[in-house]
Design a protein around this nucleic acid. Structure first.
Lengths: 153, 153
DNA sequence: TGACATATTCGGCATATTCCGAATATACAG
DNA sequence: CTGTATATTCGGAATATGCCGAATATGTCA
């Protein structure tokens, strides 16, 4: 009796995927992530292809993409080439990615402010940069607090 | 003497666009936003098409898209149909958009946690949802502080 | 109302993405 | 070294996206 992916679970996968794709995660990878979230145990590529109805090549690239995002972890089994995948308990990965973007944006705005003639424009760019940096800082602080409070590994 | 868009400015526009598109902003709109950031005064669609080298239709849709994001403001001129566009001083728009996504994701995770059999999975989903909510809260607080401290209009 | 200026929509082309299946590579056991 | 099981790469078809120019709509003045 293999996973027929009950209605609820299927729906969950779809919804999570729809919410993740705006973050730049490609569709198949997003669905895979939703699926992994529901799997109590690591799953093999073959199981994935069956559960999600996608080709094995797609499953392979999607899995490694999630791994590169540190959203999934590969559990290699000694004594065989078989690899099992599971979600990583790294909820922060996507937030960190956002923060990198915020930082880069702030930096670019500051640089632009210097090489600009108009005083008003320059001030605006500086203010924007400040704002984004504040946001970045707030998220980083919150992540640290969370990590300490919740997961004193 | 029309805007030949100096090297620096052109570069700035490109860079800002590259940093914005991962947020889901389509290319032309992203470039337009970068351009508007450098404009001391509101600009017309015709100026935009010339400065950015894009068609007028593209400029029109991009401008209205930015407006719908509240990233740009349309300054309609009484007595003529002409519309001028400028950046809005609403730096928070993109962050708010992110927050909406975080909220939706957290909600979906909680819902999924209830209709799931495995205790472990359920706990994981709840924890993730908590995390995203905490992040959302942190950003919202930071935005409020910023607004009060910086712009007591 | 008619004439003009400007903005918006629409159809279609060009390009980029996504995904699959076949072919290839890699690791392991005997 | 050979065979088997698995993962990965690659080419191409289907689909989606982005953008333009022509056509259309909308607003303004006389």
């Amino acid at each position: 009796m293999s996973n027929k992916a009950g209605k609820h679970q299927q729906r969950f996968v779809e919804d999570v995927a729809r919410l993740l794709t705006p973050w730049g995660v490609p569709p198949v990878a997003a669905r895979l992530y939703g699926h992994l979230l529901l799997c109590p145990r690591p799953v093999s590529l073959d199981q994935i292809t069956e559960d999600l109805g996608i080709s094995k090549s797609s499953a392979s690239v999607a899995a490694r993409l999630l791994e590169s995002y540190t959203l999934a972890r590969r559990h290699s089994q000694p004594g065989t080439k078989r690899a099992l995948y599971a979600v990583a308990d790294d909820y922060e990965a996507m937030i960190r990615q956002q923060n990198r973007l915020l930082d880069a944006l702030a930096g670019r705005l500051n640089a632009g402010a210097e090489s600009t003639a108009s005083q008003a424009v320059s001030a605006r760019l500086e203010e924007m940069a400040d704002f984004y940096r504040v946001m970045r800082g707030a998220m980083e602080d919150a992540m640290n607090r969370w990590r300490r409070g919740r997961r004193p590994r």
